[in-house]
């Protein structure tokens, strides 16, 4: 029982941890792309990687101030969005999907390649770039703090605080946009591009704006991740993260402002709870070691998430916040 309580506490920390922020920001971006505009971006992690490395390279390699690094990361994401959008947004939705998935994988391979090592640090990546940021914390970052049964280091707490403020601001921005006529056009594009064109809206420009905006959110996610881990390593930015972010989005409810945020928190909670809980059950002998060894747990928790998602799609296809009527409508 104490073990389960402990697992609950650890999972509770994951609920608020920087990884949840990372996925929340990725998913907010995907929500703008997929949930509202209907753009299939399968390479959101590429934007995150540019955000993370924007800071890492600027600070560690070029010796620029931290905030300039943030700016570099955002600009890189904007450029990537333009490069991806220019050739594909005039075409059918699936072309963007193909191009983004290839770009995410290709960009990671470029960043970890030997020839890129002088800039990106290759497979070992870059570190020691978040000192300026941690120094801004108004409390002692060397200490450890106990909050509701969990222990946080001072710098961890600082990253998480700023991270959630960022998530709140991004959600606020999405909320403000989606209640405006701009949001109405974008949602209409999701439903039927040609109808929107016939009403005098420049669909291409709107799709581009949405792609850039969601990409910037993704870059913020990558920055939080890089600062949270204290290092930027290309292989951290596997494209599987994009799909986990999609899972979080669908769990929370697409085209809802808080859907991606709550979805990410729950996703991380479930993953962590399954992990710690299963390990303690194995250690206590409740689950016999022949049936399941603790090394299998890391894989099994994703199986559990998968089963959970399947149940969700069967019984609540709209996600936690979604509107069932909306999901049940025919595509046409």
């Amino acid at each position: 029982m104490a073990d389960l309580l402990n697992a609950f506490a650890i999972a509770g920390k994951a609920f608020f941890g920087f990884q949840a922020i990372f996925f929340a920001l990725l998913a907010i971006g995907l929500n703008v792309h997929f949930g509202y505009t209907g753009l299939l971006n399968f390479g959101q992690i590429a934007f995150a990687m540019l955000g993370g490395f924007g800071i890492a390279i600027s600070v560690s390699q070029w010796g620029l101030p931290f905030w300039v690094g943030v700016l570099v990361g955002v600009l890189a994401a904007v450029v990537l969005a333009l490069l991806l959008g220019l050739p594909t947004l005039r075409l059918r939705a699936d072309y963007l999907a193909i191009v983004t998935i290839a770009t995410a994988e290709g960009l990671r391979l470029v960043f970890r390649s030997v020839s890129a090592t002088p800039v990106t640090g290759g497979t070992r990546g870059l570190s020691a770039f978040n000192r300026d940021f941690v120094a801004l914390a108004p409390w002692d970052t060397g200490r450890r703090y106990d909050l509701i049964g969990t222990t946080w280091s001072g710098s961890e707490l600082w990253v998480v605080t700023i991270g959630w403020i960022l998530v709140a601001l991004c959600s606020l921005l999405v909320w403000a946009l989606m209640r405006s006529p701009w949001g109405r056009v974008v949602k209409a594009i999701r439903e039927d591009e040609d109808a929107v064109r016939s009403l005098g809206k420049n669909v291409y420009a709107y799709k581009m704006q949405a792609l850039v905006l969601g990409g910037i959110f993704g870059a913020f996610g990558g920055m939080v991740y890089a600062i949270g881990t204290g290092s930027a390593i290309p292989d951290q930015y596997q494209n599987a993260n994009t799909f986990l972010a999609y899972a979080a989005l669908i769990l929370g409810g697409a085209a809802r402002v808080l859907g991606p945020v709550i979805g990410s928190m729950l996703l991380l909670f479930i993953l962590q709870f399954a992990d710690t809980g299963l390990r303690s059950l194995i250690a206590n002998g409740v689950i016999p070691a022949e049936l399941l060894s603790s090394t299998d747990v890391a894989q099994l928790r994703y199986v559990l998430v998968g089963i959970g998602l399947m149940l969700l799609l069967v019984f609540r296809p709209q996600g936690i916040f979604g509107d069932r009527r909306e999901v049940m409508l025919d595509a046409r």
Binding site: V185, K187, A188, D194, A195
Partner: peptide
């Protein structure tokens, strides 16, 4: 359009305002 393009997941009023 020949195949009617109502924007399904927008309300009737939102369709109009568009």
């Amino acid at each position: 359009f020949q195949l009617t393009k109502a924007l399904s997941r927008l309300t009737v009023l939102q369709n109009m305002l568009l």
